[in-house]
Design a protein around this nucleic acid. Structure first.
Length: 501
RNA sequence: GGCGGCGUAGCUCAGUUGGUCAGAGCGCACGGCUCAUAAUCGUGUGGUCGUCGGUUCGAGUCCGACCGCCGCUACCA
């Protein structure tokens, strides 16, 4: 059994979850769910990033302590993921004691290895913002927020000697072509590394809301350095090295394209500096756009995933995100697209197939599911499509995995049209046809369950499967013929009621 | 400016190393069916594969130029 450790970024608690963060989390969840089916020992982590100046200020403005503010927002994430059926094994928060311990242990190791040195950070500083800006951000030498002149300031802090890892990173990338996916993002990260790496400051003195530097308590770690280490914390870094060793480096990070540098450059270098293997794989996804634009508070185009799930059902939202966004590319969300996909794929194809099969089984087979035929016309297509779908899941291509499952659904619908069992007298011929159709539903339920766990479990129950869907293991469970005949088939209400709008 | 990517049917997109590669789904049109959630099945519509050259027996598929769009070019998470 191999181990598979799936992570999402930890979400910053300055904002409630929106459809963009939900997209990331749903994709990670589906990937993790597939790996469980594939028989891997899976650990799936998500959580929240709670330190830093922004939280410090926002909480003060709201009349709360930073911790109160973090508690409040973190609970919204927990609830949202619950509503969306996210199967995370742990939820890490960077303000937890275990994380403070891990950060201090991790960076002490980096320090002991000689990769941290004291220096001074210099840059353009806005007194009103109490923050630094790059020259690119400055507008005519003025603060882009306040419009006031920026001052050249310097601050004593600690630097991570990132520059020493330039060649090591290049070597690692070249030795592991699949390290970052898709390829274009890998090239982007590698190009950045090749252009030359500078040391980076990793502590802040002006900010107090963070993890103190163990050897110099007047400083706290810069929030990004603290945040990345969550991936190590959750599997026992610094507290349970044996457990850590079981899961590291079998980690698969799913991230958005906006945080490539932190994950694809800083983080592997940090791991090397701490004496660890770099992460096994980083999968980069694009942005979920609305009307072609990025979701943002100011554009008022943010979509609440909890509301959307309340409207369409969590499974349908998950399906749409996984099916209509090519992992790695930007996707565009629209209400019309959501409805269109729902009706076409879920109500008309999938749900209706389940419905018509159940009805004919009821009329022609006394409501008892018959056995599929080993030599069914559908067997060959089912075997190859199921196999291809499984491969797509394993290859981080949910959109392909689902498309292939739907091809199987279409095959089954077409076969029913061709044979018209509803016109036949009860008997072996009808039994065979419907046994085949039920077998297709069984296979589809497995293949689609990472995307729609609740609906697939319900279908699984309705067709009379006795074992639990969650206990199915690919590839054995995807072999043709495992439908357990003789059980009552239940029609039930529509799995996905068709929508008019 | 530098590096990288993209531009294929109305829409969303597939198209390994050049030779059934001109495709899928949706949409639309026509026909069949009526078991099913007015669902389904079949047939068809539809593209000079961004433009112009080049290499080749043969190019969405390689090379060059050009047009249009986009990403990255570091310490905001």
């Amino acid at each position: 059994m191999s181990r598979y450790y799936q992570t999402t970024p930890i979400y910053y608690v300055n904002d409630a979850p929106h459809l963009g963060t939900a997209y990331t989390t749903v994709v990670a969840d589906a990937l993790a769910r597939w790996r469980r089916i594939a028989g891997d020992d899976v650990f799936f982590l998500t959580g929240t990033d709670e330190h830093g100046q922004k939280i410090d200020r926002a909480s003060a403005a709201a009349g709360l302590s930073p911790q109160e503010m973090a508690d409040r927002t973190a609970s919204r994430f927990v609830r949202a993921w619950s509503e969306l059926g996210i199967s995370n094994d742990d939820f890490i928060r960077t303000t937890e004691p275990r994380h403070h311990s891990a950060v201090q242990a991790f960076l002490s190791a980096v320090n002991d290895n000689g990769y941290i040195e004291k220096g001074s950070y210099e840059g353009l500083y806005c007194v009103s913002c109490e923050d630094y800006f790059t020259e690119g951000e400055a507008v005519g030498g003025n603060c882009p927020i306040h419009g006031k002149p920026l001052e050249w300031m310097s601050e004593e802090n600690y630097f991570f000697k990132l520059s020493l890892f330039e060649q090591k990173l290049i070597d690692y990338y070249e030795a592991n072509p699949e390290f970052v996916r898709p390829l274009t993002k890998r090239n982007e990260a590698l190009g950045f590394i090749r252009s030359g790496l500078r040391d980076i400051s990793i502590t802040r003195k002006a900010v107090q809301w963070g993890v103190p530097v163990p050897w110099d308590p007047g400083h706290v770690f810069y929030v990004w350095y603290d945040a990345l280490i969550n991936y190590a914390t959750a599997i026992g870094y610094g507290t349970d090295q044996e457990r850590f060793g079981q899961w590291w480096p079998a980690v698969h990070h799913l991230i958005g394209k906006d945080i490539i540098r932190f994950h694809c450059v800083w983080w592997p270098a940090m791991c090397m500096a701490a004496g660890l293997e770099p992460p096994h794989r980083i999968v980069v996804h694009g942005w979920l756009l609305v009307g072609g634009e990025k979701m943002s508070k100011t554009k008022l185009n943010q979509i609440d995933p909890v509301e959307l799930a309340a409207d369409f059902g969590a499974d349908a939202v998950r399906y749409h995100l996984l099916r209509d966004v090519t992992l790695g590319s930007d996707g565009d969300f629209s209400y019309e697209g959501m409805v269109g996909r729902y009706n076409a794929d879920l109500a008309n194809n999938f749900g209706n197939l389940a419905s018509r099969v159940a009805t004919v089984v009821d009329r022609k087979c006394g409501g008892v599911g018959p056995a599929p035929r080993p030599d069914s016309k559908l067997a060959q297509a089912a075997t190859s499509l199921a196999s291809a779908s499984a491969s797509a899941w394993a290859d981080f291509a949910p959109q392909d995995a689902l498309e292939l499952a739907w091809r199987l659904i279409r095959e089954a619908n077409a076969e029913l049209e061709a044979t018209e069992p509803w016109k036949m007298e009860p008997g072996a011929a009808v039994d065979g046809i419907l046994g085949d159709a039920l077998e297709v539903l069984r296979l589809v339920a497995i293949l689609v369950s990472p995307a729609m766990p609740t609906a697939c479990a319900e279908l699984w129950r309705r067709i009379g499967m006795r074992e639990r869907l969650s206990d199915q293991r690919a590839p054995e469970a995807l072999e043709w013929g495992a439908y357990t005949a003789g059980a009552a088939v239940e029609k039930g209400s529509a799995l996905f009621p068709r929508r008019s709008s």
